[in-house]
């Protein structure tokens, strides 16, 4: 199944995000071996160079480790994954908060709405 991409942003950034999600959600748990660039590119139906670039970025961020002989692995450092995951959550919440502030909602108001919605979700 080809992955879907948004049209207004570079594909490699979207690939980075997708693979991050796969790692955070446990599809690729810590320490597992990743498929080859070619297989990943094939699955996503994207250019192998672009996939390569995305993996390089993830490696730079420390989420992926390349072992010269045996391929690419998700890092075994769970703390590292958690840190990256928290960072992603913080970024997304931050983005949301900025937007909501622009709409003129105060702190208490936002908190109240969120608390209420979370309670409703529990049921």
């Amino acid at each position: 199944m080809p992955w879907n991409f948004e049209n207004d942003r570079p594909i490699y950034i979207q690939l980075v995000e997708r693979i991050q999600l796969l790692i955070f959600s446990g599809t690729y748990p810590a320490g597992t071996k990743l498929p080859s660039v070619r297989d990943l590119a094939n699955e996503a139906a994207v250019n192998p160079n672009t996939m390569q670039r995305a993996l390089a970025k993830l490696e730079e961020d420390g989420l992926i480790i390349t072992q010269r002989t045996s391929g690419r692995f998700v890092t075994e450092d769970e703390k590292m994954i958690k840190k990256a995951r928290d960072k992603l959550v913080q970024e997304q919440i931050n983005e949301f908060l900025v937007k909501i502030q622009d709409l003129g909602f105060g702190k208490e108001e936002v908190l109240a709405i969120i608390t209420k919605m979370l309670e409703e979700m529990k049921i």
Partner: peptide, 25 residues
């Protein structure tokens, strides 16, 4: 999605030549 690079030809002239992700960025 499969391309690295694109070349645009218009009426026999080269009007653009760039990386796909550069265009998107």
């Amino acid at each position: 999605k499969v391309l690295d690079y694109v070349i645009f030809l218009k009426d026999g002239e080269l009007v653009l030549s760039s990386f796909v992700d550069e265009i998107r960025a």
